[in-house]
């Protein structure tokens, strides 16, 4: 069995860590997808004829970024639930 939840006053510190971790994962994913979207929109503006290709690549890359963030979120969920 895992050690019992460490309690700091009224707060459970592991849940706090999980919440902070979830927030950080969301933040990182937000930054990543934001940069990706900015670059994609810029390139679409520069080359509107390539918009279909750029959009496809954008969705693919966004999925990768999001995937990493979701790993983080799932691990945070694990910490919170254990």
């Amino acid at each position: 069995m895992l050690p019992e939840t460490v309690v700091l006053g009224e707060m459970a510190i592991d849940k706090m860590g999980a919440a902070i971790g979830a927030g950080l994962a969301a933040l990182a994913a937000g930054i990543g997808i934001g940069r990706l979207a900015a670059a994609s929109v810029e390139s679409i503006a520069r080359q509107p004829e390539a918009s279909a290709d750029v959009r496809g690549a954008m969705i693919l890359m966004a999925a990768f970024v999001e995937g990493v963030a979701l790993f983080g979120e799932v691990i945070c969920l694990l910490i919170a639930l254990l």
Binding site: A63, F64, E66, G67, V68, L70, F71, E73, V74
Partner: peptide
């Protein structure tokens, strides 16, 4: 694995 987590996490979320 990332396919699995992505779909699961998105829909659960």
């Amino acid at each position: 694995f990332s396919l699995m987590i992505r779909l699961f996490a998105n829909i659960s979320a």
